[in-house]
Design a binder for these strands. Structure first.
Lengths: 334, 334
DNA sequence: TTGAAAGCGCTAACAG
DNA sequence: CTGTTAGCGCTTTCAA
């Protein structure tokens, strides 16, 4: 970070041919300065467009609050949609939104230690970042209002969804649509600790199926790395097997879309020959006509921001864990 | 009321038994401090409830370390990708990214008037916002470093593309692929003043066609409101006409995707029976396998941030207008 | 009435 | 990895 040359009190002093003390005085105690001198100084001030910075800043610091959002490097569409919701709410309340991207969970730790103090934030929204109890502890003690989105923690406010129920919902929807043979597709990355939403969705899906007398075979459960191309390739093989399912629930819209393309690759008609139901309701889902389970991403950001603002206004409010509903959005693939 | 002066970095240092420099470090470069020492300092900070004074900090740094990004309400994927590029570059240089969403051009004015002083920013990046000469004037005089993305202005730094060349490139690509009958699809909204990229792309496309002895008929030029559903519906009608083109250039990926769906709706094989070439290279394009012309959106944000930082480092650098290249990305639709 | 100079709280070389 | 030290832009003594 480097200097930017905007005029200082020294520049004014030099131009006016007086000392900085005099300039300071005409700014703060004008009557203590000889009228003539004052005139000279004032015109120098005008000529340079000088603004005493400290004052401006002090004023600014008071007027606008700042809310920080901690997000994983926001390449993923879901973060964007959450951010969008938060940005909207915050700007409506005249708060500034400062974004911090956290690239590794090692960094997360040091961030949490100093960020709030060092950067004077009023509140913090943490998106889709999971952390240890000790970290949560620290945050809670720090006295900085915080709202967690996606990965809840008992001692902090959070916005969450019920992934198990989501899986069950998928099963119920597909069953009620008349399908009888089911599959699941999700990604492989298992986190070192904590919750894994994908696993939860799978488990809910399986239970929902079982509850209705159906089941999900291992062969029909495809776990592949979370990227379009890999999923698509594996998806083709998956769909070419004789025992392939006729309805599959994909744990995320991205993988659902990859599967949709795999189906098209091998000439399978969707949804006539293969039904696909996603999860998330990314903008993408609408763009490709994907039926999916909406977890109201934009809403999650909005609600997080509003909860934060509410707590800022009334710090005595108890910690809240808000659970967002899950909704099936029927489009063209299931 | 008796106010006990709030703790300073000196108090913390004394309590922790270290120098003020070390305290400063744990605040700004935590990883440069021995973990144990850091712990001691942090607990001293906590015990005292120390909060660094933003004013002093900014003064010592001669910079606030904050870059503002002005963007239209960032629902559009293209803003997101630009933002992503900027965020990445800025965070690499340890700058904070503050987002301001501007919903109306009336707001833009007031923002430009008060933003720099009121919010103490070092620099400003303005995304896809077009403004009058007087506004540009104000900005230039304000002494706040600014970089414009998409809509250039002579007196300010900018990152831009050549939309006309983009249109021409589309024509050349399609011609070279062997197509002989062409169409164009774009949106209808014409801005009150200034440039309209879509119109430019159309004009470049037409000229490129003409140069090779082809032409673009009015019936094959479809202009519809920029939204998925409307474009798709009109697209179906457009594609059902007997004189329909076999290769169409869509001015944006979103409309290209809508047309792709329209083609599927009526059973047209892409690209065998209909080729579609988009423009933008949104993430979406990759997701749906859309061939398109990349305008390197992420890169635009990155370059904007870097240009800004460079000017901050050396204010004497002349104003620059950086033109980003355009690249055809061949995927599956053309 | 004015200027010199000593801070304010903090960061950033530079040594060690 | 840590401490010393020289500023940053500005206000405020203290003499002159």
């Amino acid at each position: 970070m480097t200097n930017k040359t905007s005029p200082t009190i020294y520049d004014v002093a030099r131009l006016a041919g007086v000392s900085i003390a005099t300039v300071s005085r005409v700014l703060n105690d004008p009557h203590k300065v000889n009228e003539e001198t004052r005139g000279v100084v004032l015109s120098a001030i005008n000529r340079l467009g000088f603004v005493p910075k400290a004052e401006a800043r002090a004023r600014a610091m008071r007027s606008t609050g700042r809310i920080g959002v901690l997000t994983p490097f926001f390449t993923a569409p879901s973060f964007v949609q959450r951010l969008r919701g938060a940005a909207e709410a915050l700007s409506r309340h005249n708060y500034e939104l400062v974004i911090y991207t956290v690239n590794s969970s090692a960094l997360l730790n040091t961030y949490l230690e100093t960020l709030p103090i060092a950067h004077s934030l009023d509140g913090l929204i943490i998106l889709s970042l999971q952390f240890s109890d000790s970290n949560a502890e620290r945050l809670a003690n720090q006295g900085l209002e915080t709202v967690l989105v996606e990965y809840p923690h008992a001692s902090l406010n959070s916005i969450e969804i019920d992934d198990i129920a989501g899986g069950r919902l998928a099963a119920e929807y597909l069953i009620q649509k008349g399908y009888t043979s089911f599959g699941f597709i999700g990604d492989t990355t298992i986190p070192e600790f904590g919750i894994h939403p994908i696993t939860l969705r799978l488990s809910g899906f399986r239970h929902g199926l079982n509850a209705a007398g159906f089941d999900l075979s291992d062969e029909n459960t495809l776990l592949v790395p979370y990227d379009m191309e890999t999923t698509r390739q594996n998806g083709r093989a998956y769909l070419k097997r004789p025992g392939r399912p006729t309805a599959v629930f994909a744990a995320t819209d991205l993988q659902a879309t990859a599967l949709l393309r795999a189906a098209r690759d091998i000439g399978l008609k969707v949804p006539q020959e293969l039904a696909i139901l996603g999860f998330d309701d990314l903008d993408l889902a609408d763009y490709v006509g994907l039926s999916t389970i909406s977890q109201h991403l934009d809403e999650s950001g909005r609600v997080a921001a509003e909860l934060l603002l509410a707590r800022l206004a009334d710090p005595k409010r108890p910690v809240q864990h808000i659970q967002l509903p899950l909704t099936v959005i029927t489009r063209e693939t299931a």
